[in-house]
Write a protein that binds this DNA or RNA. Sequence first.
RNA 1: GCGCCUGUAGCUCAGCUGGAUAGAGCACCUGGCUUCGAACCAGGCGGUCGGGAGUUCGAAUCUCUCCAGGCGCGCCA
Length: 579
Amino acid sequence: MQAEHKSILSLINSGIASALKNEFKADQSQIENILKKTTVSIPDDISNGHWTSNIAMVSAGILKSSPRDLANEVIKVFAENEVFEKIEIAGPGFINFFLTSESLLRQTEYLHEQFLETIKHINPRKILIEFVSANPTGPLHVGHGRGAAYGDALKRMLELVGHSVTTEYYVNDAGRQMDIVTASILLRSANIGAEDFPSACYQGEYIKAISADIVLTPDECKTIEDFLKDLPADEDEAIDKICLDLKNLSKIWDSAKNIGLQSILGLIKKELSDLGVDFDEWFYESSLGGLDDSSSLLKQALEQSIDTAGYEKEGAYWLRSTDYDDDKDRVLIRRDGRVTYLASDVAYHKNKLDRGFDQLINIWGADHHGYIKRIEAAIESVGYSKSSLLVLLVQFANLYEDGKKLKMSTRSGTYYDLGSLIEMVGADVTRFFYLAKQADQHLDFDVSLAKSESKDNLYYYIQYAHARISSLEKKYEAAMGSLPSSISANECPEALIEIIQMLMKHASTLLNSVERYQPHLLIYFLRELAQKVHQFYNEVNVLKASPEEASTYMFVLLQAKQVIDQSLGLLGIQAKEQM
RNA sequence: GCGCCUGUAGCUCAGCUGGAUAGAGCACCUGGCUUCGAACCAGGCGGUCGGGAGUUCGAAUCUCUCCAGGCGCGCCA
C-alpha cells in the first residue's frame, strides 16, 4: 500500500487529528486544548520508537479517561498502514511508532516535505533586526562581534522559515561621543603633545591616522592650543568646553567630524565584512533632525510622546515610564534644552514601526537590560504596542589564551578588537565559537582552542564529516558515473538508521532553534549528526558494498551533507569540501 | 536594597516551551588504520543536576525560598 502522506510526520499528525475527532469524540475546544500540549517527536532512544507521541497522556486529564485506553483508540487509526512495523503503548502512555526499514529509508526522500509540514503553522512577519549599533568611536570589540554573528544568524534562520527580515545598524552620529571623537581628531591634527592631550579623548592609533587627513594652518593650530588653557578640573567639563570652543571653528569642525565618521564607519564596516556580516540598512541618528526643526522626526515624535505619556517638571520634560514597570520616570529633554539618548530612541523606534515592521528585534549587550522598560514605554507613548519589540540580550565575551584571560583595554599593551580576533582564528571559526553558546550567557572564548586544528575543536569535527562525505561523493561519482537520486535498498545497517533519525530530527531542531532565537541548538545538532556520520563511516565501507546498497548509503549521506551545508550556512559558515 | 542572567561529571559545556535510565568533548585507562580521509571510531572511569520545599501520572526543566557568582540600576551613551 502506498502511503497517503509522503512524510511520516504528516501521516501521524493527520491520524491524530482524525482520532481526536472520530474516536475520542472530543469537542472543538477540547481538541484545541489537547493539540496545544501534544507533541509528535523523535525519541532520543530508538528503542522508544522512530516517532513517539504523548497525546494519550495529555488527553487523559481533559477527556477524563485512562491514557492506555485512549492510546488504543489512536492506534486503531493507523492499523491498516503498512509503513509501520509496529505501534506500541509504553510507559505511562507513550505511543511509539516503529517504521519498517523500507519506509524509514524512504523518509530520506521526503525531508523537504517534512520540513514544510513542520513550519506550516508559522505566520510570516515583517521583521527588523537592529544589532551591533556600536558608537562610531573606534573599531569593534569582541563583544560587538558576538552580537554581529548572532544577529546575522538570526536573520538567515528567520528568513528560512518564511519571515521577511531587514537588518539595520543604528549609527550614533549625533551625540556627545561623536563630538569627543571629532575633538580628539582635531587635537591630534594640531599636534597637541602627549602631556596636554586630554585623557577623556580617544587615544587610539586610528585617531592619529585619521588626523593626518586634516591639514591645519599654523594659526589654527595656535588657536586650538589656546583652547587647552584654563580648563575646568573636572574631566567631563573640560572636554565639553573644548568641544564647545572647537565648534566655533565651524568649517574645520564639520570637516573633521565628517571625515572622522566616515573613516571610523569604514573601519567598522571592514570588520563586519571580514566577519561576513552585511547590513541591509544604516540608520543615522542625525537623520532624526533636531528640536529646532518642527518637521523633524525627533520633534514630531517627542511632541506625541510627551503629549500622551509625558510631563514637565523642574524645567525638564519627562516620560512617565513608571506606567510600564520602569523603576523611575525618565528625562526626554534636559533642563538645558538638549535631548537625551532616550529621546532619540523614542523617535527612532517610532520611525521603525512607521516603516511598517510588525516585529522589532533589538540585540543589545546584556549590560543594557535595564533600558528595556523605558523603551517599551517609549514605544507605547508614540502609539504602538510594546509587544512589537523583542529585546535579545548578548552577554560579553572574554578571550582566553593558554588559560589566561586576554585584557581588552586600550591602555594595556594587548588590545584585542574584532579585527585582530578574526585575523588570529579566521572568520568562520570566530562565528562558530560565538554561536556555539547561548547568546545570553557569558562566553569564554578560548582562542588557543579556536586556533588549534585538532580533534578538540568541534568546528573541525563537524567540517570533517562534511569533507568526508564530499570526498566519498567524488569517488562514488567517478566509479559509478552518476550520483543516486533515490533509495534503492529495503534494508540497511543500524548505523545508517542512526543518521536517518538525525535527518528526520533536523526540521524540528531548526524550528526550535528559530523560535527560541538560539542558533547554538543547531550547532549541537550538527555535532550529533557529524558523530553519526563518522560512526557509519568507520563501520561501513560504501564503495565496497553492492551497487544497490552503495547507492542507498550514498543517497542518505548526501542528504546529511546537504543538511550540514545548509545548517552551517545559516550560521554564516562555509562548509568545507576538503580540509 | 531592587531588577536581569547564571550554578549539571575533575575541566569546558549541551539538555530547560515538563516526558521514558541526565548527555558530549577534554582529562585518565583499554582497544581499532597494508588503500572509501585515524582531524575518526569502539569500550571503561566519572554526577545528592547549588541546598530545601511545592505543583502532578511524571521535575535538571515550572513555582517559592535560601546559598553562591556575574551584570545593571545617571538630566551618560
